[in-house]
Every structure is written in C-alpha cells, then in structure tokens.
C-alpha cells in the first residue's frame, strides 16, 4: 500500500510537530509514508469564505499530487471534510467533468488520521504512553462532517498512563469556524470562552483534538488567561512514548 501524508498547509507552516508525529507514528506501526512535496492546501479557507473560483486550482493540484497513492492520511478532520464534501462541488461548479471524476475517484482514499488507524490499519492500541490528565474536544468537522465517531476516543483510551477526563458539552462548537473567527470575532470569542471554561472544569493539563485550527483558537484563549492548560493534536499524543514524550 502506497501511503501519502497530506500535512495540510496550516500544519506544514505552523505546527510541524503534528505531521512529524504522524510520520513517527505510522513508521512505528510499520507503515511507510511519503510526503509528496508538491502538495499545498485543500482550499477550504477560500471555499468557505466564498472564493470558490480561487479554490479550484487547489482542487486540481490536490487531485494531481495525490492520484498515485492508495491512501492519503490527513491529520485534520476539517481538511478531510473539505476534500470529501467540497472538491466535487467545486469541480462541478467550474464545469470540469474530468476534474470531477478525478476527485470522486480520489476521495474514498482520503482518510482522517483516526479513520486510517482504526479502519485501514485496524489498530486502536498504537503503543503510546502519555501520563497526563487529558480532555478530548471532538471538532465539529470530524464529528458532523466526516463522522469519525468515537475512533479518536478508542485510540486515546488505549494510551498507557493517560487520565482521560470527559469534556462537558463536548459536542458544542468552539467558535473557531475559519474566517468566522475574524469576521465575527465577538461571537467566536464568546463561544470559545465557554469552551475554555469547560476545558478548565475538567482539571486537564492538556486539551486534545484532531484539528490544530480549533486548538489554536481554544489554546489562544487559554494562553491569554494563563490557564496552565496546553493544547496538543491527537497525533502527538499517539506518537508519544516513554522514550520520546510529547
């Protein structure tokens, strides 16, 4: 099986620890992974802000770069959702049936990280060690757009040493929402303030999620409060071992 990592532009640029953890984790599980360096971005920020025309070249480039692979692993529920649920629409809108076909052929091979681990590799215990009190925030797009269900929690429960605290009102949006965080900053912060409060109620040291975008928002609020809670992507917890801790 030829496996590619789609790091996502945001992780590639701002959060190298996350795609690096995916590589470490998959290699530990005996799965060779490639990073096609021509990759850039799924275009979600453009699409969701209304700039569909500008997003189409990114759809085209995504389909071309990842076409040769059997599985494409994405450490983001949101970017996975954009590829699966928006790329075909963008291709159709651009009046490009060839691209639409390429996209619909490709998207069944695009997996969010927890889907790839549980459904494709068939593992829930990935041999991780993370002796901290953790609460898990299910991001909206992992939960309601691509429906990862409890796969991330299955993976977290199998981590040795972890003290997993349930997050109150976990399924409520944190308020990030892409450019919503800027265009409607007041509402975004009001939603995030409640999410941060629920995180603090758990007494967790670490809040974990499958999307660094949501974590940047939640973490930005917690950091501003000097709350003493750090954020970590699911991949980094799963890559953590006694020898190499996250």
């Amino acid at each position: 099986m030829k496996v590619a990592l789609f790091a996502t532009c945001f992780n590639d640029t701002m959060w190298l620890g996350t795609p690096r953890a995916v590589v470490t984790l998959l290699e530990r599980l005996g799965c060779a992974v490639e990073f096609p360096t021509a990759q850039t971005c799924c275009g979600q920020m453009l699409t969701n802000t209304g700039y569909a025309d500008e997003a189409v070249p990114l759809v085209r480039s995504f389909a071309r770069v990842f076409e040769p692979y059997d599985a494409i692993v994405v450490p983001s529920g949101s970017c996975t959702g954009s590829v699966r649920q928006q790329h075909a629409w963008l291709a159709r809108r651009a009046g490009d049936p060839g691209l639409e076909k390429a996209v619909t052929d490709l998207t069944p091979r695009v997996y969010e990280l927890s889907e790839f681990l549980v459904d494709v590799l068939g593992v829930t215990d990935v041999g991780a060690y993370f002796p901290h009190r953790v609460t898990y925030h299910p991001t909206c797009h992992s939960m309601r757009m691509i429906r990862v269900g409890d796969r991330p929690l299955q993976l977290l429960r199998a981590v040795r040493g972890i003290d997993l605290a349930p997050l109150p009102l976990a399924e409520e949006c944190c308020g990030f929402g892409g450019t919503f965080a800027m265009k409607n900053a007041d509402v975004s912060v009001a939603m995030g303030a409640d999410k941060a409060r629920h995180v603090r109620e758990t007494g967790a040291e670490v809040v974990v999620a499958g999307d660094n975008s949501c974590l940047a928002h939640i973490g930005g609020l917690l950091e501003r409060q000097r709350a003493g809670v750090r954020t970590l992507h699911l991949a980094e917890v799963l890559a953590s071992t006694e020898e190499s801790r996250a």
């Binding site: 790091a7 992780n11 590639d12 640029t13 701002m14 959060w15 190298l16 795609p19 690096r20 590589v23 990073f35 360096t37 965080a181 800027m182 900053a185 912060v189 995030g192 940047a216 928002h217 973490g219 930005g220 609020l221 950091e223 501003r224």
Partner: peptide, 23 residues
C-alpha cells in the same frame, strides 16, 4: 487586521522550521 484575532486570543509564534524542511 489580525488584531481581531489577538484582541482576545494569543497567537502561536511562527515556528523556526516548517514540516517540509524537517522532511
């Protein structure tokens, strides 16, 4: 215009290395 982010939220500082440089 990034003040609408940082008015209420801290922002991550840009990292010293990108993932593709590490790769």
């Amino acid at each position: 215009p990034l003040t609408s982010w940082s008015n209420a939220r801290d922002a991550p500082a840009p990292p010293k290395q990108t993932f593709r440089q590490w790769w």
